[in-house]
Design a protein around this nucleic acid. Structure first.
Length: 831
RNA sequence: GCCGGGAUGGUGGAAUUGGUAGACACACGGGACUUAAAAUCCCGAGGACUUAACUGUCCGUGCGGGUUCGACUCCCGCUCCCGGUACCA
């Protein structure tokens, strides 16, 4: 190694801290991170990473998310796009209230302090955000538009009030979030939670179910799994609504079923504990009243409801079978929920496994009405849940399940006992939260006029920010100044709604607000939407695959339908491409404070610099997979930067032009390395963002350059070419470092604004190729032949190799498969 | 429970989407440099057996089957882990 030439730079070691401070200042001065509002001929590109909840400190999951986004944003800038890359704070939410209780500070104080802290950390990472567009959702300038939108939804009938159950803790006198219910008890006082019915606000997302489902087809830039999860979540099913009569009553019991073909197999009905029929039965049945009370002590979590022991009790009432007219006992079951559909289901134990187990447990009748098309089914062994042929179904006997669904539904409709019905699993969006730290729901309750939306000129309804939560009832209920107001309609004294919005409300439209974040005239500006929306690349955790992403898609359509922009201006969908990143794990589980397995990004940055932190998080795993944290790996990333740094030593001041026609084999090899790396790294940015592989390719190029001894002008030029390409391609990942290298290479532009390198195809041309030779699909050797040779020549070359030919001895060649440029597989058999 | 995803050396991962399994890195071992250490550089390495030999053979991508000239990749059946499950965000 030629160590003497570069003695001056040897003494100067790579110092991340100095370099990073220097370049952050330079970028800031140059203003290269701001999205340009001028028409400058560049195409727009909107890159968005999910904004953070300001929890206190940046964690590694944030670092990963934002480094991914920054790599994309920087790459697109280098490709010549005018890039919008904003950041802000999802600042309302439960943790702020919890912290407020713990530290006796109002949540606003805690939240804003965290924002300041985390903003500093993001800046220290050198992320190329347009800070002039920063937003915080807890600011009235932001949530006023959400309140405005809600009043429009009330006017349109898209927002409404209805009863819904919440987890209630009696001693704490408060509603508990699902997260605060641990094994059925309150996390703070260990009291079993009970369900409480409250009047709450809903938004009719079900009105948009069909469009939300249909438009999934447009989302070709989304991972298929996310599209599939949304499709399942919406859960469209076609079935029948069936109306059962009740013995000795005028009332009816309505249910929905996806299996009308099994209707003749109904042997009992099951209703929710909260169903009027159950309540009525309990009045004269103390045992049942006790059971209903027990049912109200399950948390509202779906996982709890579905996995608990299935229990029931008879109401003593009978329903009348819609077709047969036979009496059918009505039971109360703890797994039937009020508020999902009609709060009642028909039960067919012969053809539904849960019903089967329930029937076995309580010795209820099992009536088989579907038989397998081929063979028999032992109905004592379990439910037969497949489609088949109808039996024991009177006039419908012999029909196949699909025909029977149709026939029975038609019969029900003709006899006024039901109809075909499309049902969605998706339920309307419950947006009320009985919490303080959220956007106030802009409604005033008047004794005479009812729930009246706050008028435009009275918006925003500002949340008092000085209140102190205690863990009990919402402090808003004790804030007289907030609570009391006048009815906008009749002027009489009235009370404000004390609930606040679900924080998903804020995160459902922030992507659009970034297009005109300081707009005081409207929620968004149509021209700005035209320019930037939809988001070209959205990046965030898989955990948001359903809820956040579905609500945001819905809200986008609400905004469109409110006339804020047209489909042409903002698209029908808010996010064109989606990258779902995996979590950051340590010791196999998600990093979290409670588990004590967190790694503080600041400590890494302090020790190794931002570029090392960035490089490691991008290199350690493919973006969509979970990333296992590894301290040693961080050191490895840092060492890599040191290796590149030392490559500078090999350069002297000659900078000739690289020439593709230079025939020196070593020049050709290094140029091949350079240009194949450009190809690989570019491919990573254009297809799937496999940055771990892109960085591995850059490491390989580094290894090649390190092993290369530049000789003569052509050699030096090829070396410079490789170094410059390396510096520019490193810029999206380790921007400070790349800029410093580029500057030291004497490049005219700093790396972050350099244009992306082009592949010189002539440097990739090869005269000879290596083919793997397989016999019976097992690798037996390699041959190197001229690239255009065919199967016969390849066979000849294979036979010429002794180590290959020995496998062909005494064999008859049956078949030869040549995969051009890859392999030759020879299939043989004994002669 | 239901929906979705995953499993490849000691570790993180790669494999041009059916064509050389283990790129790149971490950890480890050996060597060079050094008074020494750090840093750096060079070399080695999936496992088993075998050879004078990095010779050669076999096995190997969670488990059990299948399709194919050829399977980490496709199909069927499992196991375990992770995410979501509507009030954590």
């Amino acid at each position: 190694m030629n160590c003497n030439k570069g003695t001056e730079s040897v003494s100067e070691r790579y110092s991340a801290q100095e370099i990073e401070a220097k370049w952050q200042q330079k970028w800031d001065t140059a203003g290269i991170d701001a999205a340009s509002s001028d028409e400058d001929g560049r195409e727009s590109y909107y890159c968005l990473a999910m904004f953070p909840y300001p929890s206190g400190n940046l964690h590694m999951g944030h670092v990963r998310n934002y480094c991914l986004g920054d790599a994309v944003a920087r790459y697109k800038r280098m490709q010549g796009f005018n890039v919008l890359h904003p950041i802000g704070w999802d600042a309302f939410g439960l943790p702020a209230e919890n912290a407020a209780i713990k530290h006796h500070r109002p949540p606003a104080e805690w939240t804003y302090a965290n924002i300041d802290q985390m903003r500093g950390q993001l800046k220290r990472l050198g992320l190329s955000y347009d800070w002039s567009r920063e937003i915080a959702t807890c600011h009235p300038d932001y949530y006023r538009w959400e309140q405005w939108m809600f009043t429009k939804l009330i006017e349109k009938g898209l927002a409404y009030q209805s009863n819904a159950e919440v987890n209630w803790c009696d001693p704490c006198h408060t509603v508990l979030a699902n997260e605060q219910v641990v094994d059925g008890v309150c996390w703070r006082c260990d009291t079993p939670v009970i369900r409480k019915n409250l009047k709450q606000w809903f938004i009719r997302i079900t009105d948009y179910a069909e469009e939300l489902l249909a438009d999934l087809d447009q989302l070709t830039g989304w991972p298929e799994k996310v599209v599939g999860m949304q499709r399942n979540w919406i859960g469209k099913s076609t079935g029948a609504e069936v109306s059962f009569g009740l013995e000795n009553s005028e009332e009816r019991l309505d249910i929905f079923t996806t299996r009308p073909d099994t209707l003749m197999g109904v042997t009992y009905m099951a209703v929710a504990a909260g169903h009027p029929l159950a309540q009525k039965a309990a009045e004269s049945n103390p045992g049942l009243a006790v059971f209903l009370d027990e049912c109200s002590k399950i948390s509202t979590k779906e996982a709890d409801v579905e996995t608990m022991e299935k229990k029931g009790m008879s109401t003593g009432f009978n329903a009348i079978h819609s077709i047969s007219g036979e009496p059918v006992p009505v039971w109360v079951a703890n797994f039937v929920l009020m508020g999902y559909g009609t709060g009642a289901v028909m039960s067919v134990p012969a053809h539904d496994q849960r019903d089967f187990e329930f029937a076995k447990k309580y010795d209820l009748r099992i009536q088989q009405v579907i038989a397998p098309v081929n063979g028999d089914w032992d109905i004592t062994s379990g439910a037969f849940t497949d489609a088949g042929v109808l039996i024991n179904s009177g006039q419908f006997d012999g029909l196949a399940s699909t025909e029977a669904k149709q026939a029975i539904t038609v019969w029900l409709a003709e006899n006024n006992k039901g109809s075909e019905r499309i049902q969605y699993r998706l339920r309307d969006w419950l947006v009320s939260r009985q919490r303080y730290w959220g956007a106030p729901i802009p409604v005033i309750h008047c004794d005479d006029c009812g729930a009246v939306p706050v008028s435009d000129d009275q918006l925003p309804v500002e949340l008092p920010t000085h209140l102190q939560p205690t863990g009990g009832a919402s402090p808003l209920s004790e804030c007289e100044a907030f609570k009391h107001t006048d009815c906008p309609q009749c002027g009489k004294p009235a009370e404000r709604e004390l609930d606040t919005f679900d924080t998903f409300m804020e995160s459902s439209w922030y992507m659009n607000r970034y297009t005109s974040p300081r707009n005081t005239e409207a929620m968004v500006d149509a021209a700005d939407m035209q320019r930037w929306a939809p988001v070209d690349q959205y990046i965030g955790g898989v955990e948001h695959a359903v809820l956040h992403l579905l609500y945001a898609r819905f809200y986008h359509k609400l905004m469109r339908d409110a006339g804020l922009f047209t489909a042409g201006q903002g698209g029908d969908e808010p996010f064109k491409n989606l990258l779902t990143q995996g979590m950051v794990l340590k010791d196999g589980t998600k990093m979290s404070k409670s588990k004590g397995n967190t790694v503080d990004p600041s400590a890494i940055i302090e020790r190794f610099g931002a570029d090392t932190a960035r490089l490691f998080t991008l290199f350690a795993a493919p973006p969509e997979k979970d990333l296992e944290w590894n301290d040693a790996g961080v050191e490895g990333a840092h060492r890599f930067l040191g290796r590149v740094w030392r490559l500078l030593q090999k350069l002297d001041d000659s900078h000739g032009e690289a020439n593709a026609n230079d025939d020196a084999a070593s020049v050709k090899a290094i140029r091949f390395a350079t240009h194949s790396t450009i190809k690989k790294v570019t491919h990573a940015f254009e297809h799937g963002f496999a940055f771990n592989v892109a960085i591995a390719a850059l490491m390989e190029l580094t290894n090649s350059l390190q092993a290369y001894e530049p000789v003569g002008d052509a050699g030096k030029a090829a070396y410079s070419e490789g170094m410059e390409a390396l510096a520019v391609m490193l810029a999206p990942f380790v921007p400070h470092f790349a800029c410093e290298i580029a500057e030291r290479l004497g490049m005219e532009k700093i790396a972050v604004v350099s244009s992306w390198p082009q592949v010189d195809e002539s440097a990739l041309a090869q005269d000879e190729i290596t083919l793997v030779v397989q016999i019976q699909g097992k690798k037996r050797g390699e041959i190197t032949i001229a690239k255009d040779l065919g199967q016969d020549e390849a066979m000849a070359a294979a036979r010429a190799s002794a180590s290959i030919n020995k496998w062909l001895d005494g064999m008859q060649v049956v078949k030869v498969i040549l995969v051009p440029g890859r392999l030759l597989n020879i299939v043989v058999k004994l002669v």
